[in-house]
Amino acid sequence: MPDTVAQAGAYLHHVAFESANPERLAAFYGDAMQMEVEKISETQWRCEGPARRMIVLKGEDKKLGFSGLAVRDADGLEMIRERARSQSVEILDNPSPYFEDGAFAVRDYDGHLVVFGLSKAAYVKTMGWPRANAAAPIWGPVQHMTYRTQNIEGFYEFYHKKLGFRMVDRVVRDDGSIATIFVTSNHEHHTIAAFDGDRTGMDHHSYEAGEWSYLRDWCEHFASKGIQLMWGPGRHGPGHNLFAFIADPDGNWIEISAELEVIHDRPCEDWPHEARSLNTWGKAILRS
């Protein structure tokens, strides 16, 4: 069966997080992630920067509201919709304000809501944000999401088998069981990944700086705001990307990534379940 979502060229366009203190969380992303913040209602804030968008909803701390994946064109969107229907995946209403009419949502086996749609014209991803001076926002579009799951086989079945995300890499334990899965919806190494573990929920979401110099700039920016790195800089094995992590006030992990592998036609690879696969440079925070 074809990798339908990957053929449609979907990419992570925006994310929505719940928070018991949404105004505080939105203000943090405005400052730390260089976004403009707008209060839409008593229960919703929007944060927007160059090719990065976040919706903050009043609710439960550290809970994903939904993720929004934009698709290249209407034909691709219909391909994904028909693939989901053919696999008996329930088609749900679109909760996102960033997508055109015709967008739809699905819910994975862990309850995460994933929205597919066509971006409204004002929010189409651009590929070369000009940074004319040091005061301009640093490049870093929202790029991927990583979950923790107690049902790693269900993650594989839903995203790869039912929807048609392309399998890229796996981390495999000595006994042959899967510790981590990476799947992509486009040419980048992964759009969604999952660690097999003892809880269900978010692990982190990531912004792609593109080049090492921009990762450096992000770290300098965080330092200027008094925000300490919680992990990194380092280099992952799968994806080969450079990384640094911070945490927001609710405890959500934020990754800044650089030079993520571009995938063309290589087969899925298996990595050993060891610290070096997670960070080839040093300390690893193992979650599976």
Rank of each mutant, 00 (worst) to 15 (best):
F195A: 03
M167D: 08
F116K: 04
A135M: 12
T146Y: 01
H160Y: 05
R131W: 05
A103V: 02
N133V: 06
I152H: 01
F155E: 00
R148Q: 12
I138K: 02
G164M: 09
V106W: 02
P137L: 13
G164K: 06
K161Y: 06
T184Q: 02
G102R: 08
A194P: 04
A103L: 05
V171W: 06
D174C: 01
H189I: 09
F104T: 07
E188Q: 09
S185Q: 07
A136C: 08
E100Q: 14
Y98Q: 13
E188H: 09
V168E: 09
A194T: 02
V106C: 04
G140F: 09
R131P: 04
D169V: 07
D174W: 01
G176V: 09
L118Y: 02
I178T: 15
V142K: 01
Q143C: 14
A121E: 12
W129L: 12
H187R: 15
R170N: 02
R170I: 04
V114S: 03
P95A: 12
F195M: 00
A132C: 06
H112M: 14
Y123M: 06
S119G: 14
F116R: 02
Q143K: 08
M127L: 13
A132G: 14
H187A: 14
V172G: 02
V115P: 01
P97A: 14
H189Y: 01
V124F: 11
Y147K: 02
V171R: 00
A193C: 01
M145R: 08
E157R: 13
F99S: 07
T180H: 10
S96F: 06
D175H: 09
I178L: 10
Y98T: 10
V142M: 15
E188L: 14
P137W: 08
D174G: 06
R173F: 07
A136Y: 12
A136S: 15
P97T: 11
R131M: 14
S185F: 00
A121V: 11
V142L: 15
F155L: 04
G128S: 14
L118V: 07
F195Q: 01
H187D: 15
T126Y: 10
M167P: 14
H160M: 02
